[in-house]
Design a protein around this nucleic acid. Structure first.
Length: 894
RNA sequence: GGGUGAUUAGCUCAGUUGGCUAGAGCACUUCUCUUACAAAGAAGGGGUCACUGGUUCGAGUCCAGUAUCACCCACCA
């Protein structure tokens, strides 16, 4: 049967069709699958735009694992979804609208119209993203598609909010928060991006008679100072602690500065004193709270408003933008001779990562999640829940313990938890889950719906987007609706992969939400991947203009090539560089695989016979052995999340062993029935193992091989099938013999090329076996003679001798244990051969010397494990034998 | 200031509990259009595993320190 398959694999022609067939097969939906549940929740991409390479990486990883587990016989759920990404999306749409000429989108459009614009944008980018996920080949269950802002997820959000409110974990408080003037909204600590800036550090006194100078980079906020903190052990200032000074600096009222003690003040830094501005610094606000709890309160005077301008408390500075007020205040300080020093320093300032402006610290009434308060009935705080889940297991149950790969991130996580403050969850933007709290006069009511009576108004704020994405692992499964009962078998989810940059944003919040709301960890294993960088090691970013569109890459090279290049050559947790050459290399491999299959399918039409072990030749035993251990290796690697290693091993076997050696030898060896069985079976099982990595080409090959089933639904191969029962003792040695044959062939090829021998001309070769060599070896070589001749060696005549004599005027290549030589009579370039052999001898001598000294070392012999010693002894014996032969040979060269 | 990671071939990177003479891809050299594949095949060259000490019979691997780079956290008032 002659088949017609194109020489070059063309992914563009098949990928969409295959994806459709997979979808129709029902394999994406775990309801159609048997086995233990296995679930992965897709980290929902933000609906702010299109899929980028990072998403492509994540899809590759998740789909790899999903397909692998499905082939392991699991009931696999890979649940897709998208994130409404509150601030990010609104900021993005507002930017677009501003470009279109709507300068103040919120005022000009109003809440409903602006929300409509955002919704349109979100829906649009959502559908693009979902299409792109399909392009990647991701085998997710579209019937369970979720969105953080859809009705079901909104119910979950409200449910958790109300519960936390009732448990007293969510509170409304007047505290200093991060405020983006540009975005007119709060942001959480984690949403800040710190950037280095040079600014001036001013050292001054509030008044001539004020005893302590202080330093600041924000003089204008000093109009709201209410205290100066000094170290209680500071001899200079100790005497002032407890006193209050007044100073007239132009604020609405004279400043009343209380000198307070604080251990954290560094005596040696700056002036050793800190001007405390409780209203405009998170740290100072903490001091304010501390003083309050100590019964020695200080005042809190805001001087900057939500527009970033000075307010009435700032007296003569009121109404000025902060920067202008700063200059004016500094000028005033100079005039009054209060400024002692002015120096340039660099320090980092927090910028809103979405709106891009420097955030202002302002005291405001906002909603917070209290992370330190004990949860009723639990005796633990949210912070403790978050720590337990990773440290000892939720509820001290080791089965409810999260493992993180690589484990160094555990430390990072704990460190973050230690420093965690209450989480500000209210945002003043409109795109997001509205806070389920209702007000009427002084009354407050917390529930998804307003009370029946008239006059209740809902809070206008929305929730931080991470509040809803924190629920993702279980809100996607229908919680708190009835559906959950049916779906909760998928929770805790099994595997979660994410970039290390969202460890705190997301992983931490999922743990918080899940352990609190449903008393389960959200996932068992977390796999942290690095971020992708360009070939120069820079992050991909729009502003650098170095972004790559994964879809364009797929169109050029195919999804498989992209996936393979993203998964191979990376290790967990580490960043990796991405560039087109990597995709090219993967494309070349995919095409190689295609051609391997093409050759096998065309030349070895499968039939159903069993493997005839009587007819096994060394090459067969060799490849079967290699393959059966490969199967075990790959399974283990994937189970240990060593995905890149698995890909490399597969590639090595496929290309260097199966294609380069076995396939070539199969062309000449006579036991066609065995060859047929092995080629077809290994090809088939190789497709299974490659499938999670490169699903499209493997499915295509599977289909071309005439299989009725789909590869996606096939089982992972078992190594048992390839294990040769040792009924024939010679098979054990076959493995070794085949290595001899390989070495012989390489040696002959080397002779030709290194000596520039005419490749067309036939070569006469003598293989000399030593007299004491295994008689089977001769048999093998007699048998392999024809193969050696044919396998691109150009050998015309090959004889095998058994003797100990050196043949003069020949090339000598000791093989493996020193008892086998490849020789070629005549035509020797003596000088060249001498040089080569001398180099080789020097090499071996060095190695042998090392081995000897080790083996003569009593410490080594007495302390090293036996197998290591044996290994080295064996190796020494071999190399010494080689050395003897090579030296003999060298002396024969004249 | 605290922490983490990286440093291995020209480039990009593997190297799982320490154990034969340290690997891959790309690039390079030479040869080959040999009927599966030139997006290929064959044979090669190329490394003091950043540095200095230590532990050990044995260190790329473990420990300490140093240097350079990258990142994270805190933030200097």
């Amino acid at each position: 049967m002659k088949r017609d398959l194109p020489k070059i694999y063309e992914p563009q022609k098949v990928e969409d069709g295959i994806y459709k067939r997979w979808e129709e097969s029902g394999c994406f939906n775990p309801d159609n699958l048997e086995g233990d549940p296995y679930s992965i929740m897709m980290p929902p991409p933000n609906v702010t735009g299109v899929l980028h390479l990072g998403h492509a990486l994540e899809n590759s990883l998740m789909d790899l694992m999903a397909r692998f587990q499905r082939m392991q016989g699991k009931k696999v759920l890979l649940l897709p979804g998208t994130d409404h990404a509150a601030v990010a999306t609104q900021a993005k749409v507002e930017k677009i609208l501003i470009k279109k000429g709507i300068e103040h989108p919120r005022e000009e459009l109003g809440r409903e119209k602006l929300l409509e614009e955002i919704r349109k944008f979100a829906e649009n980018s959502k559908s693009t993203i979902l299409k792109q996920i399909r392009k990647m080949g991701t085998s997710c269950d579209w019937s369970r598609l979720a969105y953080t802002f859809d009705e079901k997820r909104s119910r979950a959000v409200n449910e958790v909010f109300v519960r936390m409110f009732n448990d007293g974990l969510i509170y409304r408080g007047y505290r200093v928060v991060n405020w983006s003037v540009k975005g007119q909204s709060t942001c959480s600590d984690d949403e800040l991006e710190y950037k280095e800036r040079t600014t001036k550090l001013y050292t001054f006194r509030y008044a001539k008679d004020f005893p302590i100078p202080i330093a600041t980079t924000r003089p204008e906020t000093k109009l709201g100072d209410t205290a100066v903190a000094v170290n209680p052990n500071d001899k200079r200032y100790k005497k002032f602690i407890g006193q209050t000074f007044t100073a007239e600096v132009g604020a609405a009222k004279p400043l009343e500065i209380k000198i307070i003690a604080d251990e954290n003040v560094d005596i040696n830094f700056g002036t050793g004193a800190v001007g405390v501005t409780p209203a405009h610094s998170a740290i100072d606000f903490e001091m304010y709270e501390k003083q309050k709890s100590l019964g020695n309160p200080i005042k809190l005077i805001p001087v900057i408003d939500e527009q970033g301008k000075m307010n009435q408390n700032a007296g003569k500075y009121a109404g000025l933008p902060a920067e202008v007020a700063r200059e004016k205040f500094v000028a005033w300080l100079k005039e009054n001779d209060l400024l002692e020093k002015e120096e340039e320093i660099t320090h980092s300032v927090g910028m809103s990562d979405r709106f891009g402006d420097v955030v202002e610290a302002l005291p405001m009434t906002q909603w917070f999640v209290d992370v330190n308060k004990k949860i009723p009935d639990k005796e633990k705080s949210l912070k403790e829940l978050m720590r337990d889940a990773v440290a000892i297991g939720h509820g001290e149950d080791s089965a409810q313990k999260i493992t993180i790969t690589p484990d160094r991130f555990v430390k990072t996580y704990f460190n973050w938890i230690e420093n965690l403050r209450d989480w500000c969850i209210s945002r003043q933007i409109w795109w997001g889950h509205r806070i389920p709290v209702w007000y009427k006069n002084e009354k407050i009511y917390c529930a998804p719906q307003a009370p029946q009576e008239e006059g209740w108004e809902q809070d206008t704020d929305t929730l931080d987007t991470w509040f809803s994405s924190g629920l993702w692992t279980f809100s996607t499964l229908g919680w708190p609706d009835k559906e959950w009962e049916k779906e909760k078998l998928f929770h805790p989810t099994n595997w979660m992969q994410m970039g290390h940059e969202i460890l705190f944003f997301w992983m931490a919040r999922m743990i918080l939400m899940s352990t609190y709301a449903i008393d389960q960890i959200p996932f068992k294993d977390v796999y942290i991947h690095g971020i992708l960088r360009d070939e120069k090691g820079q992050k991909f970013s729009k502003s650098l203009g170095n972004t790559l569109d994964p879809i364009a890459i797929i169109e050029k090279y195919g999804a498989d090539s992209l996936r393979l290049s993203l998964v191979a050559g990376v290790s967990p947790g580490n960043d990796s560089r991405f560039y087109e050459e990597k995709v090219e290399s993967s494309r070349n491999f995919v095409n190689k695989l295609w051609n391997i299959a093409r050759y096998v399918l065309i030349s070895y039409p499968a039939d159903k016979h069993e493997l005839n072990t009587e007819n096994l030749l060394p090459s067969d035993v060799w490849i079967l052995q290699k393959f059966s251990s490969l199967i075990k290796n790959i399974s283990n690697d994937i189970k240990n999340f060593q995905l890149s290693q698995a890909a490399e091993k597969l590639r090595e076997f496929t290309w260097s062993e199966f294609a380069d050696w076995y396939l070539e030898i199969a062309k000449f060896e006579e036991n066609k029935d065995v060859k047929n069985w092995i080629l077809n079976n290994i090809l088939e099982d190789l497709m299974r193992m490659w499938h999670p990595f490169i699903p499209f080409v493997t499915e295509t090959i599977w289909n071309e091989s005439g299989k009725k089933t789909m590869l996606i639904a096939e089982k992972w191969p078992s190594s048992d099938k390839y294990e040769i029962k040792a009924e024939k003792p010679k098979h054990e040695n076959y493995l070794e013999y085949f290595e001899f044959v390989r070495e012989t062939i390489v040696a002959i090829r080397n002779i030709r090329i290194e000596n520039k021998l005419d490749l067309k001309k036939k070569l006469t070769v003598v293989i000399r076996l030593k007299t004491d060599s295994n008689p089977l070896l001769k048999e093998v070589f007699e048998h392999e003679k024809e193969i050696i001749k044919k396998l691109r060696t150009g050998v015309g005549e090959l004889t095998i001798e058994i003797s100990d004599d050196i043949i003069e005027d020949a090339y000598h290549f000791p093989i493996s244990d020193g008892n086998l030589y490849v020789l070629r009579a005549g035509l020797v370039d003596v000088e060249k051969e001498k040089a080569r052999v001398e180099k080789e001898i020097a090499n071996i001598e060095k190695f042998v010397a090392g081995l000897k000294s080790r083996l003569e070392n009593n410490d080594f012999v007495s302390k090293a494990p036996k197998n290591v010693i044996d290994q080295q002894k064996e190796s020494l014996a071999k190399k010494e034998a080689e050395l003897v032969e090579l030296k003999k040979h060298l002396s024969s060269l004249k």
